[in-house]
Write a protein that binds this DNA or RNA. Structure first.
Lengths: 112, 112
DNA sequence: ATCCGTTATATTTGTATGGATATAACGAAA
DNA sequence: TTTCGTTATATCCATACAAATATAACGGAT
């Protein structure tokens, strides 16, 4: 029975949360489904919460992270921009590196 | 206007939270004040919450982390064991290292 | 012109976490 | 044996956050 080190990391911009694990998960789901409502369903979160999250992301981002369209073919949709994909990849990379780093730190407590 | 990377880490044992930043803060306050109720006051949390936290810590720890006494001189009190001090130091060290590590990762997003 | 499924938004409802409060048990000291 | 301040515990209450619901706006396709 050994210990595990868990972590949550997030990026802040102007002292407000910009990107975290939940937001990145949502951005990935938007990329996969092409729609904010479908992405919310796939993550079992309410549309309202999902909308608030990407609204917040887009408002504090330097460039658009998603492009949301109302009406038209299929009623509209949402897509991840290239900039959004870059951010998602960068966050995932940092997060994965953090996990690996913390695994090395486990040595310090495994015998306590 | 640059980004900041924030983090919260915690240690789990048997899939339950064992030590996190809040618990470590509380353990430090117990060490400083000699009492659980005083420690709770100093952190502006309720006694109930504080009691639940250290009860949880002690229940999942391999050795006692605090020793709580009821009655007697001063009504009783709580003190951090040597084992508890070791845990607090180990957690603080890992947490600090994590912050430093994440600072190095900032480079990857600072131009995004 | 109508329909459709989506984004966008407000309002109401539900829930879970912590706070406030009350009280018992305890044991050394006076 | 009474006092004292603490730990331990239960119960009730408040408040913040998310869920559920409702509805408007939109624009391409039919």
């Amino acid at each position: 029975m050994s210990y595990k080190i868990k972590s949550r990391i997030w990026i802040e911009s102007k002292n407000k949360v910009f990107l975290g694990e939940g937001r990145v998960q949502l951005l990935k789901a938007i990329d996969e489904t092409g729609s904010l409502s479908k992405a919310a369903k796939s993550l079992n979160i309410s549309y309202k919460k999902a909308w608030g999250l990407i609204d917040s992301v887009n408002k504090s981002a330097k460039q658009p992270v998603t492009i949301n369209s109302i009406g038209g073919k299929g009623g509209g949709g949402a897509e991840l921009t290239d900039y959004g994909k870059t951010l998602v990849n960068a966050f995932d990379n940092i997060n994965k590196n953090c996990w690996e780093f913390l695994d090395t730190q486990l040595e310090k407590i495994k015998d306590l």
